[in-house]
Design a protein around this nucleic acid. Sequence first.
DNA 1: CATAGAACTTATAACGTTACAAATATTAGA
DNA 2: TCTAATATTTGTAACGTTATAAGTTCTATG
Lengths: 350, 350
Amino acid sequence: MPIRKPPISSTHAATKPTQKTIAEMTGLAVTTVSRALQGDEKIAQATRRRVRKIAEEIGYVPDRAAQRLRTGKTKVISLILDPHNEILGFGNSLITGVAHTLAGTGYHLNVTPQFLGGDPMEPVEYIVRNQLADGIIFSRTRPFDERVRFLRERSFPFTSHGRTEFGYQHAFVDYDNEKFAYESVLRLMQKGRRRICIILPPDHFTFYQHLNYGYMRAIRQEGLQSHIPEGISLDSGMPEVFEWARTIAETTDAPDGFICPGETSFLAIANGYRQAGKERGVDFDAVVKSSSQTLSQIDPHIDNIGEDIRQAGILLGTNLLKTMQQPDGPFEQTIQDPDISFPSLDSFQN
Amino acid sequence: MPIRKPPISSTHAATKPTQKTIAEMTGLAVTTVSRALQGDEKIAQATRRRVRKIAEEIGYVPDRAAQRLRTGKTKVISLILDPHNEILGFGNSLITGVAHTLAGTGYHLNVTPQFLGGDPMEPVEYIVRNQLADGIIFSRTRPFDERVRFLRERSFPFTSHGRTEFGYQHAFVDYDNEKFAYESVLRLMQKGRRRICIILPPDHFTFYQHLNYGYMRAIRQEGLQSHIPEGISLDSGMPEVFEWARTIAETTDAPDGFICPGETSFLAIANGYRQAGKERGVDFDAVVKSSSQTLSQIDPHIDNIGEDIRQAGILLGTNLLKTMQQPDGPFEQTIQDPDISFPSLDSFQN
DNA sequence: CATAGAACTTATAACGTTACAAATATTAGA
DNA sequence: TCTAATATTTGTAACGTTATAAGTTCTATG
């Protein structure tokens, strides 16, 4: 009677293969297998190939928990995402960019939510405390950002989206908001607008400063009057902005040009003005900062100045990896130029 | 000369405290400490308290890598988020809901990005392969969803947002899209609309079926003619929808009512019609499905039917936890009712 | 006072990996 | 052929935790 072998191609595979499995199959020691998989030059080329081949065949996947326990490295990069970032694919573009950089490096990307209205320190402390990652990327940076201080004190690698005004250095990627605001004013002037209003972020963010500087520089240079709404910011809810716009639209010196560094503000304002009987392209124009061309494509009156968020993600990833590789090296700092000729949609694909 | 003690409040804390540290401080064995921390009844109440107190004091945090290596449990729930979900805080609401459920359970939430145009199986396989989580939540479910099959075959706990049409059961949370579509038609009719058009998702999603059924049921019942645009779906890019709307607006039998189960479609259509000189509230009306009241608040002509995404997150989390606790128990299945009186914004806070 | 049982604590081993030091095999040179 | 150097492989221990089984101490009872 023939001996019946247990089924091989079972999806209920007996046990997950480990380095030990490979060691037994090859007759090598576990240590050798480990080093072969790491590509250690001290292991014979032939052995390395053999081990890798078998590992591939049996579907070996290193146990991350064990690796982490032994090395202390999580091989994870945490991207902290703020809900304010979520409109029209900001989050996804950023993720895509970072993931693109991380692909093939052995690092996993882990997105950590930052809750609406939550303390920005919370996710950072949580990650550091529980050793959830080897490096952190966060956005919405403040001039004296607590997270920067906290991470620097612990020599925890990070890269921020946005600068700080600390005396010391750290890796960051930022968009040239100063230039964006400056250029926006000029563009609106070219369209004959003179009462140009800018929607600014809450003033505790660094990019508030930059937008403000750029705006004011252009306003003064051109001899205009500044219009900065009080009580309204980029983070205001759309209904709030809508109400404000509707009200102001009916005043005699209502703004006829808007600089919107965010898409939602524009939508709210456009609706508010419209409610008051004012049409875009006729009674007012706007420049919108966006990571996609979407809005400008569905409305010819929208003037879009691009911020390449995917590229920002790539840069954030790159800068962070460099920082982690050479903890004592220089900090990578990159400033993105506002782009008028926006990259084609294809480049947004994964 | 007084002896100078080393600074205590140093952030460069010597070494991370472990159970061993606590064991040494209390004179107990590591095993006892471990079990005390787990709240094992076999450990004297007094001991448990003492251990917990010291753990607290020295800021002990269990090493997740070690726990995971030993127990095989990651204590992580993975939420796979699709970029199509991203408009106006869908993702954040879902995350908030799941996080709310998970708080205090010892489970961490890990958001995994699903790349635009990427294979839906990829993140699932990745998570299972690398043992990145103990349970998975995903959305955009299909009638015969590969992910469902894959996870079921491996008895990997999951809950889907959306139903399948498999013969076997699994945990899910779904929105009653059939009812939404049906009700939407009736509402538009009440406003005197007769040429009612619905924007459907790509037909490989389950909720395509439900929306279609609900829509057709109402259309037939009321003796209307159906308008389902070809080549246009909920996932079409806004510019594409815009162009379509602009074109169709100029035809003689242009739709005068739109059912938009997504906000972007509405924005694109409204702009397209407007470009053709047609005004909402006058020449057409629309019902939008949204997880926030935002759009309806900035435009009185928008009729909003709510989908409580945060609640969906809570339910998804709850159902998943139940599934994990009793692998052989019944599968939790929940269907959310379309809500007209939408929860106040406060409930969206973290 | 002995003893069974309860109450509580502990030693040992293991999860899968890798750093380190040590051992063995191979090769080149004398 | 022997030796020294080089190339390659291996054994041991450890990362921090927990399951198991085995201990110890205490208490109540006859």
